[in-house]
Amino acid sequence: MSNEILEKLADVVVKGKIKEAKPLAEEALAAGIDAKTIIFDSLSKAMAVVGEKYESKQYFLPQVLLAAQTMYQALDVALPKLEVDANAVPGKVVLAVVEGDVHDIGKNIVKAMLTGAGLTIFDLGRDVPVKNIVEKAKAEDAQIVAASTLMTPTLASMKEIERMLAEENLKGKMKTIIGGGATSKEFAAQIGTDGWAYDAVEAVQVVQNLLK
């Protein structure tokens, strides 16, 4: 029974049946399935499938965005019931599009995929000054600072993140990952980030590796 609900919920997320997600998540909780199982055995798997479909060009952004919205509907129900697990792998990520850029669709997808992977995301939105990103990461004791930009003039901000973290002796303790159209693996290596990802699917793997 519980497996059936979880599979159905995953299917609802993958297909983006947005209105069905909330009642199903509630049904799962009522059936005695704990929130952690809902998140990891259903929502995570669903977002992984969505990622695969995007990679293989079966899905494009509209479908991915809809699946993410659907996942959030279920997550709104499950998250408040999640018991804090003291032994859980830490996974706090501060996420932002850097100042001077408002292109945030990619960032929002990364957020959905990382959330789906069970990480806690502090999303600062778009057009965010570097100072705010580093302050938030410190305040939340985050392990990962993730920044994105689609534009070239704003690449300098990513270098600035590295500089500020180094200045505060946080480099190495907090890991950085960048992404977005204007970035590249070479650029990331050049400015000394800990990771770079081509897209949201790869971002999940890179972040999980950084957390190891």
Binding site: L61, P62, Q63, L66, D104
Partner: peptide
């Protein structure tokens, strides 16, 4: 909003 526009292509 571009994200809204993309979503609306389905909804």
């Amino acid at each position: 909003g571009t994200e809204n526009l993309l979503l609306m292509m389905i909804t």
